[in-house]
Design a protein around this nucleic acid. Structure first.
Lengths: 205, 205
DNA sequence: GGCCCAATATATCGGGGTGATATATCGAAC
DNA sequence: GTTCGATATATCACCCCGATATATTGGGCC
């Protein structure tokens, strides 16, 4: 779900690919370290679909200066002719379109539940309403409970128990329980705020 | 590192693809749910490389019954002629070769460190010596410490703090610390046993 | 007995992700 | 003035996943 990440970031501000990757790294941190090999094709795909547009293209285009004289256009055209789409500082700044915003909403509702997908969706929770947030949280909790169950069954059914495999499974159980408790807290915060506008819901550590 | 998983499982016993997937699921649990779309190509690759061999092929070969009469061989040959390599119960039982065991050792030493790779290696720790185990554990700990550092910097540097992104990062920090503590315990267990052959190292909970 | 269905079993395909690599410029250090 | 690292985009081979195709065995069911 790299498209979700791109649209979520672009909804905040227009960026070009390189910046986008940096922002992504800052927001999602070690979760989902997107590579250029997937970023650029994804941007091309989204542009083809009309979810994003090139807001600003060409060489050394600065936001606070829309015009710099008649020479600029000519020079840009010349360079464009010389090197069609390649070259440095030939950056393409992308912006999200209304269609892209719709696609973002659609992608947020996607049932995918794995660590990465969930982390991404959570990072962009501010873009969706409380019912959707709760639905995603509940679904994640259900998945984690399934996982817990499965691992526990595997631990119980294990006759030949290798100590390392056992350690792995016990740690997995522990981690999953932590995750479930965390999701529980997020759900509580979400439902607890209902009807309250002031932050009197508790200091929370 | 699907090849590591395959060789690690095959080192225990000869299996065909379908069984292999089931065993893999049992040993690695929710970590690394290998799909057939990667399993069969990987088996073909390993066979080409000479890391595994087909031990037993054909139709309805059962371990406790080596012979069922002269008809069996003829019927099998006939069916073989009719459908070259496809069909049901036309299962191919794979076994690991000496070259495969060497490859397994090599793959265990691989520096890859992510959740999946590390989990797999840990699951097959019984196949390597203590120095290697310690090296892998130390490396994993170093990676987790890096991750912790990075996430903490991101949290500190964050001016515009979205509550969800913050929750994500705080939970990531917490989980990573748990993982580090766990690795620490594994290392302690590994070094604590050093010089002791009897299991007097402590009841361990 | 005959029929359907689930499980067994192998294989391929499209789509997409990753890491490596190529290309090209800018700014700064030396 | 040139080397070097960061900026910037793009492509490539390789691999993984989910879906799908195909085929048989065995068990339930009437």
């Amino acid at each position: 779900m790299i498209e979700l990440a791109i649209l979520g970031i672009l909804k905040e501000s227009d960026l070009h690919g390189y910046e986008l990757k940096k922002h992504l790294r800052k927001v999602l941190g070690p979760l989902s370290n997107i590579s250029f090999g997937s970023l650029y094709p994804a941007l091309a795909r989204l542009e083809r679909e009309g979810a994003v547009t090139i807001v600003e293209s060409g060489h050394d285009a600065a936001p606070p200066m829309p015009m710099t004289g008649s020479l600029t256009g000519e020079a840009a055209a010349f360079r464009s002719r010389r090197r069609p789409t390649r070259g440095p500082r030939n950056r393409k700044v992308y912006g999200i379109t209304p269609a892209g915003e719709a696609r973002l909403v659609e992608l947020m509702a996607d049932p995918a539940d794995d660590e990465r997908s969930f982390g991404m969706k959570l990072a962009f929770f501010r873009w969706c309403d409380r019912p959707t947030r709760l639905r995603l949280l509940e679904r994640r909790r259900a998945s984690l409970l399934d996982r817990l169950e499965e691992t526990r069954k595997a631990v119980a059914a294990r006759d030949q128990d290798d100590p390392y495999v056992r350690a792995l499974m016990e740690h997995d159980t522990e981690s999953t329980m932590n995750d479930i408790a965390w999701i529980g807290r997020l759900i509580a915060r979400e439902t607890g705020d209902e009807g309250l506008d002031k932050e009197t819901t508790g200091g929370h550590r």
